[in-house]
Amino acid sequence: MSWTEVVIEIAQGHAEALSDALMEAGALSVSVEDADEGTDQEKPLFGEPGMEPKEAAWEHSRVVALTDVDADQAAIVAEAAAAIGLAAAPAFTVRDVSDQDWVRLTQSQFAPIHIGKNIWVVPSWHEAPDPSAIILELDPGLAFGTGSHPTTRLCMEWLEAHPAPGKTVLDYGCGSGILAMVAKKMGAGDVAGVDIDPQAIESANDNAARNQCEIDFYLPNDFAVSAKAQHASGRFDIVVANILSSPLKVMAPMLAGRVAPNGSLILSGVLARQAEEVAEAYAPYIKLGVWAEQDGWVALHGQLGSDTVSPARGQ
């Protein structure tokens, strides 16, 4: 089977509305690209995870709509343009799209990722490059955390550099469960993960089972109820949280309160320019410093002194 792509270059203000209208008019799928890609005018379009730009379009956008090869592309474009109030249908070009093995094409975009000295994140359809390494079988999915983002890599590298055989570990904001699994693979004892997204908890449980890692994953309310029974005092030798700077600051008393005496706290999801303000939020409880930086992101680390008074733990 073959398809035809309709390619329209349009101003940023119309790109998102036109995309929706093209779908309503009969397009099978629509994407928006930077029309200046590959030139000196190309611009990145991203923000912190969870804080992406409200409008997924560029100043000079290219809208690409996939249609059936037998569809009336001119009619689809005209209907979409009228629906969003354009005075005239925009000019467009078409290009043929031949049938492909879309599963294999998608899989080819995800290769094993080497992290730190001896960690490999390997999609299920790949062979592990080094079977003697620490292997995490993890497919790209809906939960954040495959090792490709600098914040995840920084936390994984810290865990590898500070193995804690038999120690307890809490991964707060666990996403896919990748950090909890690294800790477990490095020999940790009891490991727990917490996330606000039920889908992340499901994904993390699936990933842990696939990687033969015994880890307890919780939603926050369940964790507050279960942590003491499952994890003694509810404090952990290592607490790692890869979230974002704003929630990390709000959660300072709670996260610091989860750290056992002489335990370590590792935070990421923090841009280098935000490191000082995040450290200030934790200063009443634990002194944090930048452990490492990668691509403008940092990992903060601190150790709770045995004589430090911990705040209330909450959730």
Rank of each mutant, 00 (worst) to 15 (best):
L45V: 14
L45C: 10
F46T: 13
G47T: 15
G50E: 09
K54A: 15
K54P: 04
E55G: 00
E59D: 12
E59Q: 08
S61W: 00
V64S: 12
L66W: 15
T67H: 02
V69M: 01
D72Q: 12
A74Y: 02
A75I: 09
I76D: 05
A78K: 14
A81G: 12
A83V: 04
I84L: 08
A87C: 04
A87D: 09
A89S: 15
R95T: 13
W102M: 05
Q107G: 01
S108F: 03
F110C: 01
A111P: 00
H114S: 15
K117A: 08
N118S: 12
I119Q: 07
V121P: 03
V121G: 05
S124Q: 09
A128L: 10
P129E: 11
E137Y: 06
L138R: 08
P140C: 07
G141T: 05
G141Q: 13
L142W: 06
L142A: 12
A143G: 03
F144V: 06
G145N: 07
T146E: 01
G147Y: 10
H149F: 04
T151M: 12
T151C: 00
T152C: 10
T152R: 13
R153E: 09
R153L: 06
R153K: 13
L154P: 00
C155F: 11
L159A: 05
L159I: 05
A161I: 02
A161W: 06
H162E: 10
P163L: 03
G166F: 13
K167E: 11
